[in-house]
Design a protein around this nucleic acid. Structure first.
Lengths: 194, 194
DNA sequence: GTCTATACTGAGATAGAC
DNA sequence: GTCTATCTCAGTATAGAC
């Protein structure tokens, strides 16, 4: 990777994490990176694709660790893995990545919260997301497909808001609290349909 | 209210609900309203203040109904109101407002999700939000202040995502599911701190 | 008081010279 | 690969018509 390209990624990650995607201009990013405006479009194509590159640079290792954790938890039990364990396997690697790079977690939260490049995210995270959805579904066989889908959405919203909606860098702590809360939510009896 | 002003509010509400705030340009709004660009700044001052006006036009009746419902539920019981009832009192009036105006609910979801004009929202909703926070706290006296604050945030994220992150207009149905999920979350035992 | 026309600044994107 | 110049479109501001 060229020096300019990496500097652009670093600057974009920091600024987007702090201010959000929409509020961060390319001119701000190139100024911090010491690069030229056109270099963004040369290396990435567009502002959206720069964001995608920021995500992809860190997402690979995090997703690998997620799948490894889920594998381990599945091996530890007979049958279905408890909800809390599945959520932990999904969320902890992100929090741990935040240790070495706190801004990246915020960028991920911003992306979900701002509804950015949904297609890109689904493309790049499809494998890991479907693995976790399947595991959760196996643990929760009694609720309807429709309610399961809604609960997944509720969870997404809570996660996004937790990652970017608040100051502070102690992500592991807040994720412990979040896992408890979401576990309670998934354990709730199905809502009766009137 | 002048004809132009109301047409601007209608157009803004519809377009922002459909596309989000950042993705909707003033030129789009005035084109749909059949108005002039400068009329926005004459009537509202800025794009942000136009959004605030869109919110305030509908928020009053919804908040009144929220407080009335909470009053009723509090009168029905001795002591603390169940979590599900409190959440219902908060969420159902919004869903019912969606019956006559489906876009408004999406606008509200967008605002939280896009992190727009947080100060404005807090100013205008301070009364109703603090009333509901107090009621919830009374129902949940055993968890710590810190965990309570986090759970409120988890809830905010789930609500925002539910309101704007999905197609379809059957808000009452999804809110029944959401209330169950959140009730389960609030009922979860506190996470032990390591 | 209300609205129109127009100009200003800054955004992302692009073509072409080097 | 990099940089300059330029394009279009965004939000904003103001002068002046009615």
């Amino acid at each position: 990777m060229t020096d300019t390209k990496e500097k652009l990624l670093d600057a974009a990650e920091r600024l987007i994490g702090e201010q959000g995607f929409a509020a961060t201009s390319l001119r701000q990013i190139i100024s911090e990176a010491g690069a030229n405006l056109a270099s963004v479009h040369y290396h990435f194509g567009s502002k959206d694709e720069l964001l995608e590159a920021v995500v992809m640079r860190r997402a690979g290792p995090v997703n690998d660790r997620r799948l490894a954790l889920l594998d381990r938890y599945e091996a530890e039990v007979d049958g279905a893995v408890p909800v809390a364990r599945i959520l932990e396997a999904f969320l902890l690697p992100m929090a741990q990545a935040a240790g070495s790079n706190p801004q990246f977690v915020r960028v991920m939260g911003r992306i979900v919260a701002e509804g950015m490049i949904r297609a890109v995210i689904e493309k790049n995270f499809h494998t890991v997301l479907s693995r976790f959805a399947t595991a959760l579904r196996k643990t929760l066989p009694t609720i309807s497909d429709e309610e399961f889908r809604w609960r997944m959405l509720f969870m997404q919203g809570a996660i996004a808001h937790t990652m970017c909606g608040t100051p502070g860098n102690d992500f592991e702590h807040r994720i412990l609290l979040l896992v408890r809360f979401l576990s309670g939510g998934f354990a709730a009896p199905p809502a009766e349909v009137k």
